[in-house]
Nucleic acid binder design. Structure first.
Lengths: 232, 232
DNA sequence: TATAAAAGTTAGATAGGTCTAACAAATTAT
DNA sequence: ATAATTTGTTAGACCTATCTAACTTTTATA
């Protein structure tokens, strides 16, 4: 049985490797700053995780997950995202409140509980922030998506997820009146000050990179953007 | 913020005082055996709880809860019983499975979460084992009830709760086919071997004190048995 | 009431997870 | 290729919650 802390390390490792484009290992310092602990603490902990064959690691080397560690970390993320969905769908919490509560709920271990919850929610594919929910085997299909900053003027795209799950960001998105599934048109990109002008349902928004760097999109015409040759 | 462990001590104290007829304090040894730790451990912990003004205690004396400790303990019990209700009502867990899961869930702290859950469940009064659920202020009304062993031959009573929440007991009750809200008639009590013969919906059951000592009942005629002068 | 039994306390140890401070290795830059 | 910087490790400490073993106080009993 993994401890609360061990689970958090594994979850962080999944997030810093699998969920990060083109990385499958991470250094001690980076993991430490992600978890908000000192590198010394990570050094110790990683030795423990290695002894449990959850990570691959050699002194002064990089940290990566073993298949067992990968699955364990994924299961924590599955639990987190299912609880977030429950909190929003059933208990009417807003999308900026669910993350913090799910940080606690994700450590309830019962496999049966989480599978029943999955069923109760009718097997959701995405959590309130648009992130895919790993299945009962810890597998996940991350749909093709791009960052809004990469879109070009003239592109018509659809918001499908947020990258920054902080309540500040989510409340800002709520405040300006945009949400997941909204279709937006890129009207202009100003290089000088990096502001982007977008339009959704006839309303215009001028947004900074703080917004555009943290919004995941797909081309609106061809939702399977992989096979799409449009510029978006 | 109380730790997981501190909460368990407070919960145990409520159960050994408030929920125990005519007791408002408890000794170190009894609390230790209830929590399945050594008396030395309780000795230490109680000093800590006293420093936080959660319990009253003097060296070699008895332990009792302060008003703050009482309320905190009650809130843990409220959370436990609401989660049990959720697990049974919404996720279709059986009454012998819910206790163990609720032992973990009860330590999720958010007040808002638990009040939303309460609302989602339509403000249940009793948990799956028939125990009253404390309200948002930590208050509880324990309805008048008696132990089945106290009933006399000829009495007609209604099962309203179980005393023993172990899955062994609950599975036994399921197996013989009885449940909460069933009306039963005491047909005979045999002093020699302490067996009781009861009848529910025309079916006869012969049960031992292991059953009769762990079933709470009220007189079936006058559900508010307090004002009833019948022998049940 | 003296003594045996029960109940409770204290000291010292362990394990998990964290820290700081001092050091060592690896990488980058001059 | 040597120095400077970044990165990572080790040792020693602390806190929480637990234990065992030895001791003390209280209570019950002969």
């Amino acid at each position: 049985m993994l401890s609360f802390t061990e689970e958090n390390y594994l979850k962080a490792l999944v997030q810093l490797t699998t969920f990060e484009e083109g990385k499958d290992e991470v250094g001690v310092n980076k993991l430490a700053s992600y978890l908000d602990v000192k590198p010394a603490t990570v050094s110790d902990m990683v030795r423990k995780l290695k002894a449990k064959t959850l990570v691959n690691y050699e002194k002064y080397g990089k940290i990566s997950l073993t298949p067992v560690g990968q699955k364990s970390g994924m299961m924590v993320i599955r639990r987190h995202r299912l609880w977030e969905t429950f909190l929003q769908e059933k208990l009417d919490f807003s999308w900026d409140e669910v993350h913090e509560l799910a940080e606690e709920l994700e450590h309830i271990h019962s496999q049966k509980l989480i599978n029943r919850l999955d069923q109760f929610l009718d097997f959701p594919e995405f959590d309130p922030h648009g992130d895919a929910i790993p299945n009962a085997d810890g597998e996940i299909v991350i749909p093709f998506r791009k960052i809004l900053s990469e879109a070009q003027a003239g592109d018509v795209v659809k918001i499908i997820a947020v990258k920054d799950n902080s309540s500040e960001f989510l409340q800002y998105v709520d405040k300006i009146g945009l949400s997941i599934q909204d279709e937006i048109t890129i009207e202009a990109k100003e290089e000088f000050d990096s502001l982007t002008t977008i339009n959704s349902k006839g309303k215009q928004y001028v947004v900074s990179p703080k917004f555009t760097d943290n919004i995941f999109i797909v081309c609106a015409k061809c939702l399977k953007a992989k096979d799409c040759n449009c510029t978006s």
